[in-house]
């Protein structure tokens, strides 16, 4: 039997908002450890992995590992009907008939909404994602997640928004990380310096560089990744010319959401 409860719907609402525009289906793996979610976009360019440990839930009972594919668009629609302070219960029975039940209960007026979701195929996830040693990344940038989102928005407004293939070049050089994009009639560069932690101890921009690196990414994807900002105040971007870049948001002490994408390579 699987039975989970969260006393505030916000966490799950934010997770769905952070993934449902780019990823249409996801694999949900429930085990004694917690929930692991994985999804890939239809072009197989980006991968998202989420971990919510059992401690993230107010009640967590999972006596047998359970894996299910679910349609994220349908789930996002259901969750938009849930209030932030609704109590969510997630249930699947032992003789599960390929469905999972999400219940939203309003603590104020006692109204209960029940959604049953059928399992769907997930085209190739979950994948085994090895964790590469830190030393294999040429640079690591940590910054406030709101700042990263703002940078993505600025670059998008400059690059022609109708162009689905706007490329952003992220380059790290000592104490600077630069975001560069080319619009129709010019270029745009946003320079972020490492900030002195004394000035703004809560919002540092930290740069760890082993060697200079300059990599190209599809801005459309980066924009979607920046929606993880509702889950964490900070984002860490790990860069390597021959590994997928990792955009990681830590979720309090209870897990993380990581987006993976390979840099574009020259033909």
């Amino acid at each position: 039997i699987l039975e989970l409860r969260l006393v505030q719907a916000t966490l799950f609402k934010n997770v769905l908002e952070a993934i449902s525009d780019l990823f249409s289906k996801a694999n949900f793996d429930f085990s004694g450890t917690g929930l692991e979610l994985q999804a890939m976009d239809t072009s197989h360019v980006a991968l998202v992995a989420l971990l919510l440990r059992a401690e993230a839930f107010n009640h967590y009972l999972c006596d047998r590992d359970l894996s299910m594919g679910l349609n994220l668009a349908d789930m996002a629609k259901a969750f938009r009907c849930a209030n932030n302070d609704d109590i969510i219960t997630i249930k699947a029975e032992e003789d599960w008939s390929d469905t999972v039940t999400f219940t939203f209960e309003s603590p104020e007026d006692g109204e209960i909404s029940i959604f049953d979701f059928d399992f769907v195929g997930t085209n190739g996830v979950p994948l085994e994602i090895p964790e590469f040693p830190e030393s294999e990344y040429q640079a690591k940038v940590r910054m406030p997640s709101a700042k990263f989102m703002r940078i993505c928005k600025k670059l998008s407004s400059f690059g022609d928004s109708g162009d689905r293939d706007t490329v952003v070049i992220i380059s790290v050089d000592k104490e600077c990380v630069n975001f560069f994009t080319r619009g129709k009639t010019g270029t745009s560069t946003i320079v972020c310096r490492q900030t002195q932690t004394v000035d703004k101890p809560k919002e540092p921009t930290l740069i760890e560089m082993k060697e200079q690196v300059s990599l190209a990414f599809d801005l459309r994807y980066m924009n979607s990744f920046s929606k993880g900002s509702t889950l964490s105040d900070q984002v860490t971007i790990s860069l390597s010319s021959n590994l997928p870049a990792v955009f990681e948001y830590k979720i309090a002490e209870t897990g993380y959401i990581r987006y993976y994408m390979l840099p574009r390579i020259e033909e």
């Binding site: 890939m40 072009s43 197989h44 360019v45 980006a46 991968l47 190739g124 994948l127 085994e128 994602i129 090895p130 490329v167 190209a216 599809d218 997928p244 993976y260 994408m261 390979l262 574009r264 390579i265 020259e266 033909e267």
Partner: peptide
């Protein structure tokens, strides 16, 4: 500019 490689192929080959 450049080519985008599939993340699926990358992890499958690991």
């Amino acid at each position: 500019s450049g080519v985008q490689l599939s993340i699926k192929e990358f992890y499958r080959s690991k």
